[in-house]
Structures are given as structure tokens and as C-alpha cells.
């Protein structure tokens, strides 16, 4: 049953990925060979070119967004910005980092960080600047302070408590086991059964 289900699943995924492989393989006679090998109709060139055009359009639109300042992007600054903004939360789409988010606010904050990096501020100073305005919530790594002790150490406390409980439980179970010596009647029965079994084997 499981193997059958796995087969169906792999068939589905292969089907999904097939057009991608074809995009790479498109061109002349190879298409024919591929068609024969896979035994199914390949998407036509029109479809493939539409896919390609769309994907270039996405790349192009991503490149259209440029920083507000007109200075050419400085790779060192951009690298620091990328690293820093991975650690910061976008307050509009709260499960995205500032680096990932396309919200307007995230863009403004990235610009702000960029200017501050250019002005020679350290990472700590920039983070302090942002937490003063948006609170600790903007940090993906909350600072360790009495208010966050439960958050930081709670899981370890739970783990230790769980281990202690488990240990106690196992120990109690072990203590509960009593030795039950065999009576003479039991022994006789065992002998009888064993000898009958060995006789069958030899027979």
C-alpha cells in the first residue's frame, strides 16, 4: 500500500518537473528523442517561450526597484545591510525579515539602515536606533533580560523537568518488578515441554 502511494506521489512530482527539464532540453532533434523517451507530448515552443519571457519579466521588475538614494550601491554596505536585515523583523508582515519583506515600511527601514551604515554607525548603534523606535519586537533574537528569562530558559526547564519525571517513572517501574522464582511443578513442566520439542526436531 505504502509503495503504491509513493509511486503515485513520485509520478505527480515528475509530471510537475517535466516541463522544467524540457525547457533545458528544447531545441531540434533532442526534443524528438525526449518525446520518444518519456512517451508523452512535450509542451510546444510557444508555451516554453511564454514561461521564459515571464521569468525574465520577474527578474527585470526586481531590478527596477532601486534604492532611493542615487549613489551607486556599495557592495560592502549592501552586504552589511543584508546581514543586519536578516536579524530584523518587518512590522507590517510580521513573519518576514526586513531583508525579505517587500512592504513599504521595510523598504524605508532598509534605506534608513543603509544611510546609517554609510554614516559609519556600528551594527549595535543601528539596532539600538531601531529598538528605541519599534521596541524589542523588531529583533528576531530577543535580548536576554529578566523579562525574557522564561522565554529563553523555559524550554530547558521543561526539558529538565521532563527528564526528572521520566527518570522517576522508570525507576519506580523497575522497583515494581518482583522476582518470581519457579516452583518445582513449573520446572517439571518446562522439562517436559523442552524434551518433547527436541524430540520433534530430531524426528
Amino acid at each position: 500500500m505504502i509503495s503504491k502511494r509513493m509511486f503515485i506521489w513520485s509520478a505527480v512530482t515528475c509530471h510537475r518537473f517535466r516541463p522544467l527539464r524540457l525547457v533545458a532540453a528544447v531545441g531540434g532533434g533532442r526534443k524528438q528523442r525526449l518525446k520518444a523517451a518519456t512517451g508523452r507530448r512535450t509542451p510546444n515552443r510557444f508555451f516554453v517561450s511564454v514561461v521564459l519571457i515571464c521569468s525574465t519579466a520577474i527578474v527585470a521588475s526586481a531590478q527596477l526597484r532601486r534604492p532611493v538614494s542615487n549613489d551607486p550601491p556599495d557592495p560592502a554596505v549592501e552586504q552589511r545591510l543584508a546581514k543586519l536585515s536578516q536579524e530584523l523583523r518587518c512590522l507590517v508582515c510580521q513573519n518576514e525579515t526586513l531583508a525579505d519583506s517587500r512592504a513599504d515600511l521595510a523598504e524605508d527601514l532598509r534605506d534608513e539602515i543603509r544611510t546609517q551604515i554609510r554614516a559609519g554607525k556600528s551594527d549595535q548603534e543601528i539596532i539600538a536606533f531601531l529598538t528605541q523606535r519599534y521596541g524589542d519586537f523588531i529583533l528576531y533574537r530577543p535580548p536576554v533580560r529578566p523579562k525574557t528569562y522564561l522565554l529563553w530558559f523555559g524550554p530547558f526547564v521543561l526539558l529538565l523537568a521532563g527528564l526528572a519525571l521520566l527518570f522517576r517513572y522508570v525507576k519506580r517501574r523497575r522497583d515494581m518488578i518482583e522476582e518470581q522464582p519457579l516452583s518445582n511443578a513449573d520446572r517439571a513442566q518446562v522439562e517436559k515441554l523442552l524434551s518433547s520439542a527436541s524430540r520433534k526436531e530430531t524426528a
Partner: peptide, 12 residues
């Protein structure tokens, strides 16, 4: 230029 927005921690 949204400078004041950042100073006031405006996010929406």
C-alpha cells in the same frame, strides 16, 4: 521622506 514616521515608530 518618512523620516518622522521612523522616529515615531509608525508601521501602519
Amino acid at each position: 521622506d518618512c523620516r518622522l514616521g521612523i522616529d515615531y515608530g509608525v508601521y501602519g
